[in-house]
Structures are given as C-alpha cells and as structure tokens.
Design a protein around this nucleic acid. Structure first.
Lengths: 133, 133
DNA sequence: CTGTATCCTCACCGATACTG
DNA sequence: CAGTATCGGTGAGGATACAG
C-alpha cells in the first residue's frame, strides 16, 4: 500500500515543522529556545521552586524565566503549583507530556556534551584550515 | 574522592550545559537554534544542495542558511562538498556526529508533532481560564 | 547555482525598580 | 519568595544588491 510518505520524509502526521506556519514550529521553539530547553531539563530531575530554577539555569534573568515558564505552562508541558502560604511558595513540575519532551532533550544534551571534545577539535581544524587559505 | 557532582545534577562529564560559560552551551544553541535544528533534520534524510535546503526549510533566508551551515560545519556536524563545476554544485551532508544529533532531534520533533493536538488543547484551556479570572 | 556584503528594523533580553 | 512593569541597548535576522 502507498502512504503519502516520501522517501525518508514526512510521516502522515497532520503537523509538519518544516512548514513555516505550522503551529508545531512555535512549540518547537519554546522547547528548544535559549531557556526553554534548559528549564525543561532542570525540571526533569524533579520539581523546583522559582528561585531554585533560577539558580540551576545559570544566567537566566527573572524576567526570562518567568516568561519561559508561562510559555511552557501554556503549552501544557509544565505544571505550576502555587501554595497560598506566606511567604508564597510555587513549585514547577513537568506534566507527562513535558516529561516526554524533557527526556528527549536531556538525551540530546548529554549526547552533545559527550561529543564536545570532538566538536572543539573540529572547530580548531576549521579555523586553522580557513585561516591558512 | 570528591567530584563537584551535586545530587541529581551533573554526570561526571567534563561539560555541563547548565553552566553559563560551558562551551557545550554554544553548540547546543547552534543545534537547537531557530534554523540549526531544522537544517540538521532536513539533512538527516540525505544530502542536499544549498537551494534544496532552502526550499525544504521553509522561511529561512539565504543569509541565515549560509550562516547556520557554516556554524554546523565548524562544529563538525555537517560536511560541505563543493564540486568545481559550472554552475557550481555544493552538497551538504551530515557527519557521523551530526547524524547522532539529527537522530535525536528528529525524535524530539516527531514527538512534539505527535503531541500538538494536546498542546493546542492545553493552550485553549490556559487562555480560557486565564481570561476568565 | 552558491553564495557574500550591506543596511536597517524590530523584538529579544538584561537591568532596574516596584508589588503582593 | 515570587513575581510584574518599564526602559533601553544589542544583535538576530530579513531585504536587497552584488559576485564568482
């Protein structure tokens, strides 16, 4: 039987991230964005409070963390649990869907970290041969 | 012996993407950047020429594709093969390391695409309950 | 066809101050 | 502690023209 599957290309999924206007593109950007990915991976190890996250994700500002968390919460990837205590305590944790994303993201990150020596070597080689030409 | 390993945090890898100044952060951003990820995934299905890539990655400009490819080539993830014909023909293909990254990236993307209905539902719910409050 | 060079805009994001 | 509001600089990135 014939699917619409081009050799090695699209599944018969209704969403295609390669298309400019596909909504999956936006979610992908939340998930792989500068802070989104690190935030999800930080939460992969367990729920964290706002300032715990802030310390864990080195370099993120309050504003960007807040913004990032809102986007991820809106996409249904992160659950926000506020306790009406004083001082306030808010815990962030992954939803099941968020865990699926974070799992794959940490896999990617660990792979990249594991290849960094080779990446750095490739960079050196590139810079040398380019500079020499 | 004491590693700097915090509970539940770092492997004993020499690189930690959570640290602001870790070089892995830069590579991660190339790989998950707006165009880097899509470019790698497009090449996962086979080598492509410049304008083939440009058409495949809907919305990318010449400038950004060129820039993205250079960064990925420098990191040793993409191999550039120029043929001295006229008109010129240049093929881009993944290196083994690039294939490792692209594999994980497409896994992530397919997962996200597969969850988009739930993501969209979550968004609707979020917007309604927030608007109503 | 495969790029590079230049200009220019806009929105990303950091810093700071303020609120509950 | 957990944020929001506002301002301003900076650089990503689009448009266009040009080059090999």
């Amino acid at each position: 039987m014939e699917t619409t599957t081009e050799p090695g290309q699209a599944q018969d999924l209704p969403y295609n991230v390669f298309a400019k206007s596909c909504p999956s593109r936006g979610t992908l950007e939340h998930v792989t964005g500068r802070w989104g990915g690190l935030t999800l991976c930080a939460l992969f190890e367990g729920s964290l409070r706002f300032n715990e996250l802030r310390r864990r994700v080195d370099g993120v500002s309050e504003k960007m963390l807040s913004q990032t968390l809102h986007a991820l919460e809106r996409d249904g990837l992160v659950h926000r649990e506020a306790q009406p205590t004083n001082p306030p305590r808010v815990d962030y944790e992954l939803t099941p869907m968020g865990r699926g994303v974070a799992e794959r993201l940490t896999g990617l990150i660990h792979f990249v970290e594991g290849q960094m020596d080779d990446v750095l070597a490739a960079r050196r080689h590139y810079d040398e041969t380019r500079g020499a030409l």
